[in-house]
Amino acid sequence: MARSIAPRRKAINTLLAWSIGFLIFFPILWTILTSFKTEATAIANPPVFIGFDWTLENYQAVMERSNYGRFLWNSIVIAGGSTILGILIAIPAAWSMAFVPSKRTKDILLWMLSTKMLPAVGVLYPIYLLFIRMGLLDTKIGLMIVLMLINLPIIVWMLYTYFKEIPGEILEAARMDGATLREEVIYILTPMAIPGIASTLLLNVILAWNEAFWTLNLTAAKAAPLTAFIASYSSPEGLFYAKLSAASTMAIAPILILGWFSQKQLVSGLTFGAVK
């Protein structure tokens, strides 16, 4: 049982942890604060932390400059679509590996993961050519497919670790009860694995949302998601910190909020079954 800890030690722990937590969070906080400053306050020397006149002008400017809504929509569709596509393909595969393991299961899993190590640049041009040929360049569906493929190994692995926790006897019971394989997966396995599937979904939405190689290189105007929206601010033509901050806040806010709400499930999924 937990021993009582000296309050002084608890206070020191608290102070230290909060300081470090604050330090780690500070760049984000600073960005959000700056987004409400005027451009002049944003570069003021010495820097102003809280005591400034809060303004929304940067958000207005960003909205005028580019169509945030379309980028956001593209991000949602691409991240969501690729994740759903991936889950649909990964659930049967993970079922096979978890419940009908063979000598090759481990090799297949590691092989899948190793495809993630293939450097994207190495195959950028071929993919680019294929995309042109198939008319997928600068389309949401094209990006969905690519992001689904690069995250598929992670999805399979995560689902596999979740499925492995489900006792095989329950699935056998379903089989004895007359369930076909399809019914077994739909009525028994999937509902039982909902927490695992949810955290897998979440992680992949985050990975897809933040993916910045394929989204930058395979889109132009039509299908560009928020990664491209923000990259357009990296051009050196006159830097405006406040507007940059506003754009950054708008790009990360949806996923940050989603992530915060679901961090508990997310963390359990991230451990890939290595930690019980």
């Binding site: 329950i170 019971a173 009860d177 039982m192």
Partner: peptide, 27 residues
Amino acid sequence: PAKRGLAMVFQSYALYPHMSVRKNIAF
């Protein structure tokens, strides 16, 4: 197994944890 017309009671009971008792029995 589904077609053999046999019923099995498992050591771990293997009840479906996400279903009520009624739904378990009805499955």
